[in-house]
Simulated scan of single mutants.
Amino acid sequence: MRLGERQKLIVVKKVEFGVYLAERQDAGEKDRVLLPIKQVPAGTKEGDKLEVFLYKDSQDRLIATMRQPKLMLGETGFLRVAQVSRIGAFLDWGLEKDLFLPYKEQTKKVHENEEVLVSVYIDKSSRLCATMKVYHYLQTNSPYTEGDTVTGTVYESSDNFGVFIAVDGKYSGMIPRQEAQGNYKAGEELTCRVTAVREDGKLTLSGRQKAHIQLYEDAESVYSIIEDFEGVLPFDDKASPEVIQREFGLSKNAFKRAVGHLLKEKKIAIKDGKIYLL
Rank of each mutant, 00 (worst) to 15 (best):
P41R: 12
L117F: 14
Y55A: 10
S172E: 11
P143I: 09
G147P: 06
Y55I: 07
A89Y: 03
G152K: 12
T131S: 15
V163Y: 07
V167S: 10
F161V: 13
L79S: 09
I63Q: 13
D48L: 04
V163W: 08
A130L: 10
D92Y: 13
M66F: 03
L91F: 07
G169A: 01
K56Q: 14
F90G: 06
S85R: 15
K109P: 00
T149L: 12
K108Q: 11
H111E: 10
F78Y: 09
H136W: 02
G74K: 09
P69K: 06
Q59A: 08
C129V: 12
D168G: 01
C129T: 07
P102H: 12
G47V: 13
L91M: 12
T44L: 11
E115H: 03
K108G: 01
V167W: 12
G43P: 07
E156L: 12
V52C: 07
D123K: 01
E156K: 15
S125M: 02
D92V: 09
L50C: 01
T131D: 05
E46Q: 12
A42F: 08
S158A: 06
G162D: 11
T107A: 04
L99H: 03
Y155D: 11
L128H: 11
E105N: 04
E146F: 03
F90N: 03
P143R: 12
M174P: 00
K109F: 04
V52D: 09
E96L: 06
Q139F: 03
D98F: 12
T44A: 09
L71G: 11
D159E: 10
E51Y: 04
V154E: 00
E51L: 05
F164S: 13
R67F: 01
F164Q: 05
A82T: 00
S125E: 13
D57P: 10
E146M: 12
K70M: 14
R61H: 08
I122T: 14
H111C: 00
Q139G: 01
K124R: 15
M66T: 15
I165F: 04
D60Y: 05
R127W: 01
S126P: 00
K56S: 07
T140L: 10
D92M: 06
Q139P: 00
S125V: 01
Y135M: 10
S119H: 05
I165L: 08
G173H: 07
E51G: 05
G43D: 10
I63R: 13
Q83N: 09
L79E: 02
K124T: 11
H136C: 01
I87A: 14
R61N: 13
E75M: 02
K70D: 05
D57T: 11
A89E: 04
Y55M: 12
V154Y: 06
I122D: 00
S58R: 10
V110W: 03
Y144H: 08
R80Q: 13
Q68M: 09
Y103W: 00
M174E: 02
G47E: 07
V154G: 04
V150I: 15
Y144A: 02
C129G: 00
L71D: 10
F53Y: 15
D60N: 14
V118E: 00
V81Y: 04
G147T: 13
D60S: 11
K170C: 06
D148T: 05
K109M: 05
Y135P: 00
Y144P: 02
L128F: 09
V81P: 02
T65L: 09
G162N: 07
